Amino acid sequence: MASNRRLSPECTAHLEKALAETDPAEKDFHVRQVLQARGVDQLPDDLETE
């Protein structure tokens, strides 16, 4: 599913840091931050919370 939305500046910064990192754990951290942020952006509006 393609999206026309652009990444936020924070997500872009995390991806740039991931590309620059040599430590795999730090690289993973930055990629996970983007995935989590984008996942929250994709939540349906009618999501039920308890």
Rank of each mutant, 00 (worst) to 15 (best):
M1S: 06
M1Q: 06
S3P: 00
S3E: 05
N4Q: 14
R5C: 09
R5F: 10
R6I: 09
S8F: 15
S8N: 11
P9K: 14
P9H: 10
P9M: 14
E10A: 15
E10Q: 13
E10C: 09
E10G: 12
C11D: 05
T12R: 12
T12W: 05
A13I: 03
H14M: 04
L15C: 03
L15P: 01
E16G: 08
K17V: 01
A18L: 03
L19H: 13
A20T: 05
A20D: 10
A20W: 03
D23A: 12
P24S: 07
K27T: 02
D28V: 00
F29D: 02
H30D: 07
H30A: 04
V31Y: 01
R32T: 03
R32P: 00
R32H: 04
V34I: 02
V34A: 00
L35Q: 04
L35K: 05
Q36G: 10
Q36K: 11
A37K: 01
A37G: 00
A37W: 01
R38T: 01
G39D: 04
V40I: 08
V40C: 05
V40T: 08
V40R: 12
D41P: 06
D41R: 14
D41H: 14
D41I: 08
Q42K: 13
Q42V: 10
Q42C: 14
Q42I: 08
L43W: 11
P44Y: 10
P44D: 15
P44S: 13
D45H: 12
D46G: 07
E48G: 07
T49N: 10
T49E: 14
E50N: 14
E50T: 10
E50K: 15
